[in-house]
Design a binder for these strands. Structure first.
Lengths: 194, 194
DNA sequence: GCTTTCCAAACGACCGTTTGTTTGGAACCG
DNA sequence: CGGTTCCAAACAAACGGTCGTTTGGAAAGC
């Protein structure tokens, strides 16, 4: 119970930090801002966290972990390379939309982590990129995708589409995240030309 | 002469600010950092600038202006929609690569401007987006692009490819910006599938 | 009564900005 | 030519305020 209560309270702090960091940036958010958002004195926050940077790490890790989980699900599923690519992009868009704050912090603010922590995040970024590449690889191997496509380059384009989402997607738009992911995948595979 | 000397010195400050803002972020850069980079006391900077925010605005405007110029050139040129789209993406990649600092600040830090200044930048962002849309529009009108393509959505994908560049492009890689722009355009028009 | 939660207060460091003054050299004038 | 005026440029010091963090003790809830 005590554990649970601690975790609950701490989770509140992390959640508020995710929102503020995504809105104002890590360096643009002070402990005062965070305290205000939670109705606490800024000093009181240190009953729940070790440091401001630890808070940033938690938010970034949360974002990274969610993308990795959804990516793995797309890899594990069956279907053609096109279907997997679609599943990955849909999962990516849905993850970004459902957790826009931590996704934004994950993509925008992770570079302000000190070296050790940043390296841990970099490893997860690399793993995610490898997932995308493996799908493209598979598509080329099965003859589904063009053999002359540069794998790393195609993967970069897929990641660009997904990672730029946070900068323009806002809830309540005409298109939901699922449709966005599907249309991205469709355009990326079929192309714009007729 | 005096004017020119003043402008030169001020340009040095703006240039150093572009580098530091892109590396450490706007809020992560102090006037002390900036002074150190120029061999000046932080107070001495105020002989050349009005405020830190004015400095951010200058850097962001510089970045915006360069993208707009290159975009307009792609629109003014002749050729098919595919050729224009290629020209725009190549220009975009080259601009981002040649002025990576201000491009990064333009895309990453502009949101920390206060309302008035941010609105001025937003207008330029809108103009650039409209350029991309007009090319896609043209391609659909001439039958070059698929008629069932959502214009705004295709434009978003193009912008995603271009705007995410700053986060992974580093000078000295295998591919130069020109090739990057060309390959993006090729992949976007022809698609990944065979 | 023990643990969790929070406050009030303080810590030294740094923030962006302003001030008064000094410096070195160019421009002007006799 | 020598002296004066001017000016951009920089420094040293200080302004009030905020930064992230620590500490000691008081409530609150099981």
């Amino acid at each position: 119970m005590a554990e649970a209560a601690l975790r609950t309270r701490r989770a509140d702090v992390v959640k508020a930090a995710a929102r503020l960091f995504s809105e104002r940036g890590y360096h643009g958010t002070s402990m005062q801002h965070l305290g205000d958002a939670l109705g606490l004195q800024r000093g009181s926050l240190y009953a729940h966290i070790g440091s401001k940077e630890e808070l940033l790490f938690d938010v970034v890790e949360e974002g990274a972990e969610r993308f990795l989980e959804r990516g793995q699900r797309a890899l594990d599923g069956d279907g053609s390379a096109t279907e997997r690519l679609t599943a990955l992009l849909v999962g990516h868009a849905e993850t970004a939309a459902e957790h826009l704050d931590s996704a934004t912090v994950f993509l925008n603010e992770w570079r302000y982590l000190s070296e050790d922590l940043r390296a841990a995040v970099q490893a997860k970024r690399d793993r995610y990129e490898a997932m995308v590449r493996s799908i493209v690889d598979e598509g080329i191997a099965t003859g589904e995708f063009r053999a002359d496509a540069d794998v790393r380059f195609a993967a970069t384009l897929v990641l660009s589409a997904g990672n730029w989402l946070f900068s323009w997607y806002r809830p309540g738009g005409e298109l939901g995240p699922t449709e966005i992911g599907e249309r991205f995948a469709e355009l990326l595979t079929r192309g714009l030309s007729r």
